[in-house]
Design a protein around this nucleic acid. Structure first.
Length: 650
RNA sequence: GCCUACGUAGCUCAGUGGUAGAGCACUUCCUUGGUAAGGAAGAGGUCGCCGGUUCAAUCCCGGCCGUAGGCUCCA
């Protein structure tokens, strides 16, 4: 038998007889490695560990805690689950079951639905089969043979999938015990490798994600290579729930929903009102430094305006139905752009007026499908940090970059580090359906935006099919505590204005020109932004945003008068203060302030009253000792003015 | 919108075919205590809404409303 040379990732080489498998190579290195190995890559191609090596090769062995190995483990556990479901519900049809981030799922076409008890039953069945350590065997067959096989088994969905595979390609299947599944692989060599798993939830899901198709039953689960990792992941999911803005928003009395008001229509409580005021303060300050003019526009507008803007053709599904006023159709506005265009058009513009920048925290209403609503992050009424910049082509790059810089400035203030800048482009197939039918303008604008981003050294990914109906966008994507993705800030180019609104300006030579329009919302909407901030800070807002900044905690009623004088001194400098005048011990007052996540506690007893000090305690950090009032005011006001980030545990 | 689960006091939740309970919060009283819960008493609910079954429904059935998870990451 001929010898082959296997090169390992550390560039060491080993000689083996041809036909040896990656698993046997692992065994020759160490029993422990062999036990943990779930997949391999041969010359950088992911593979089963039982594939014989016939020639010299670069070999990598993946254990279950490597990203590649974990994915294989997830995928194999999905198969194990499908096998269990088929045993318990022989009539169920299998469809697809991929690995996703830290989880897997499998969709079944089944008459009934899965209850929590069913999940337990399935899990037990899986444990049994894992214990039985069934060999997982890869088999290659022709496309036709595969179609016959799955047809005979009544697995219609698998047949549908195979029929879409190139007729030249062979089909791979995996068999474990009685169960056989169509799959590209790779998979673990035997079910005994699957040890630490848990089924998480069941849900409905459309076949191929299309709501026109049949609804299948999906089960989500997770698996890790060690018990510790599984425990950590489940713990992480629990912690994420604690950060959820829907929980914290209620606890901190920031907003609420009321059945009688309607779904997706948040009520801002006084604490939320304060956060809104602070955000608007930041926006006003920043925008005035950048040459914006503030405007205001009505919530209600005639339908003709939205016909002109294209909303009624391309955005109507997201608009509330028209109301009839004196025989004319009016709509509640879903966007502020048309009104801003009208403001531009309210007086003649010359090149001297450009760039013309107008901003408004405009209130918009959008009809989101009921199942899409999500706390504050996806609502039906929203106030946008909106602005439109009308400029000449020459000014476009500077203006566009200025907007990008504004994002980055804001993100720094809020300490937002985990986000993805996305260049959202149109999909040519959808021209005239989803997008304004101006193929050349689309291409032209997308090139300009992409080049500008590159010039500005801004990292971004490109996603086709995500543009606004009127132009390409730069979206800033973030994730909620429980992992849902949202567009936070957005910056869009609107090239359709000239035709539709006939906006013009007079250039230096006296001839009429058409401006470009940039639409931007770096602070998103109040709803989504504050929802995001609650989770981002875990409820621990920086001092400048905290609804209550200082809690004054008198040791006893004897120092209540002093506490009141401290309060009024602080209030005069604009600090938001509350006294806890309950007849409670200091420990209870501190506990209450900590639970309400008030950043600063000023404890005042007789000693402090005498010395005109307070005993300072910062939330999370703890006791800071006595501080003179004047000194405290200075440091707090400076922290507020600088909009410093919250103090963290070191 | 669709699938599934859920809806009991301000909050978190228990409970039963015979008109309801705990803890926290709230109010009052006692306590005046120095860095994460002092004590006592009291008040608080049309058991999401509408209908049906029943002598009797918060509980069983149906409809509606709302909330949650999912419906995107393609063998």
């Amino acid at each position: 038998m001929s010898e082959i040379t296997i090169t390992l990732p550390d560039n060491s080489t080993r000689s083996y007889n041809a036909g040896i498998t990656p698993l046997e190579v692992a065994e020759s290195i160490g029993q422990r490695l062999a036990q943990d190995t779930v997949a391999a890559s041969i010359n950088d191609e992911l593979s089963d560990v039982t594939v014989p090596l016939m020639a010299d090769a670069q070999l990598k062995l993946f254990t279950g805690n490597s990203p590649e190995g974990h994915e294989v483990l997830l995928h194999s556990t999905a198969h194990l689950m499908a096998q269990a479901v088929k045993m318990l519900w022989p009539k169920a049809k299998v469809t697809i079951g991929p690995a996703i981030e830290n989880r897997f799922y499998y969709d079944f076409d089944i008459q009934s639905t899965f209850s929590n008890e069913d999940l337990e039953k399935i899990e037990n069945q899986m444990r049994q089969m894992a214990k039985d350590d069934l060999t997982v065997k890869r088999e290659i067959m022709s496309r036709d043979a595969a179609i016959t096989l799955f047809n005979d088994m009544g697995e219609d969905y698998k047949v549908e999938i195979i029929e879409q595979i190139d007729s030249q390609d062979d089909i791979s299947t995996y068999r474990q015990g009685e169960f056989i599944d169509l799959c590209r692989g790779p998979h673990v060599p035997s079910t005994g490798k699957i040890k630490h798993f848990k089924l998480l939830s069941s849900a409905g899901a459309y076949w191929r994600g299309d709501e026109k198709n049949k609804m299948l039953q999906r089960i989500y689960g997770t698996v890790f290579s060690t018990k510790k990792e599984l425990k950590e992941y489940l713990h992480f999911l629990e912690e994420a729930k604690k950060r959820d803005h829907r929980k914290l928003g209620k606890e901190l009395e920031i907003y609420s929903f009321d059945d009688e008001v309607g779904p997706g229509l948040p009520l801002w409580l006084p604490n939320g009102g304060i956060i809104i005021d602070e955000l608007e303060g930041l926006a006003k300050e920043t925008e005035s430094q950048h040459g914006y003019h503030r405007v205001r526009t009505p919530h209600l507008t005639k339908g003709d305006l939205y016909k002109k803007s294209g909303h009624l053709d391309l955005y109507k599904d997201a608009m509330f139905p028209a109301m009839d006023i004196d025989g004319i159709e009016y709509y509640i506005k879903p966007m502020n752009c048309p009104h801003h265009h009208k403001i531009y058009d309210a007086s003649p513009k010359s090149y001297r007026d450009l760039p013309y920048r107008i901003s408004e925290y405009g209130t918009c209403y959008r009809y989101e499908k009921s199942g899409q609503l999500f706390g504050l992050m996806r609502v039906r009424s929203m106030q946008m940090n909106d602005a439109h910049i009308y400029c000449s082509e020459d000014d476009f790059e500077t203006e566009f970059m200025d907007v990008c810089q504004m994002y980055l400035k804001y993100f720094k203030i809020f300490g937002i580090e985990k986000y993805e800048m996305r260049l959202s482009l149109h999909d040519p197939v959808e021209l005239g359906k989803k997008y304004i039918n101006e193929p050349e303008l689309w291409d032209q604008t997308e090139v300009v935006v992409r080049d500008t981003l590159k010039k500005g050294n801004i990292n971004f990914v490109e996603i086709p099919g995500e543009a606004a109906f009127y132009g390409p966008k730069i979206d800033v994507q973030v994730w909620s505590a429980i992992g849902k993705e949202f567009t936070l800030a957005t910056n869009q180019v609107d090239f359709a204005i000239p035709k539709r609104f006939n906006l013009t300006y007079t250039d230096e030579s006296g001839s009429e020109q058409t401006p470009l329009c940039i639409h931007r919302a770096p602070l998103s909407t109040h709803e989504r932004f504050i929802g995001f901030l609650i989770e981002h800070y875990g409820g621990d807002f920086p001092l400048w945003l905290s609804p209550i900044q200082v809690a004054i905690l008198p040791i006893s009623e004897k120092t209540l008068t002093y506490a009141q004088s401290v309060k009024s001194i602080m209030e005069k400098t604009g600090i938001r203060v509350k006294i806890d005048d309950r007849s409670e011990k200091i420990g209870a007052k501190i506990r209450q302030a900590e639970l309400k996540k008030i950043p600063v506690m000023a404890i005042v007893g007789e000693k402090e009253a005498e010395e005109k000090t307070v005993s300072l305690r910062r939330r999370i950090i703890g006791d800071q000792g006595a501080v003179h009032i004047k000194q405290l005011l200075e440091s707090l006001n400076s922290e507020i003015k600088k909009r410093s980030l919250p103090h963290r545990e070191s």
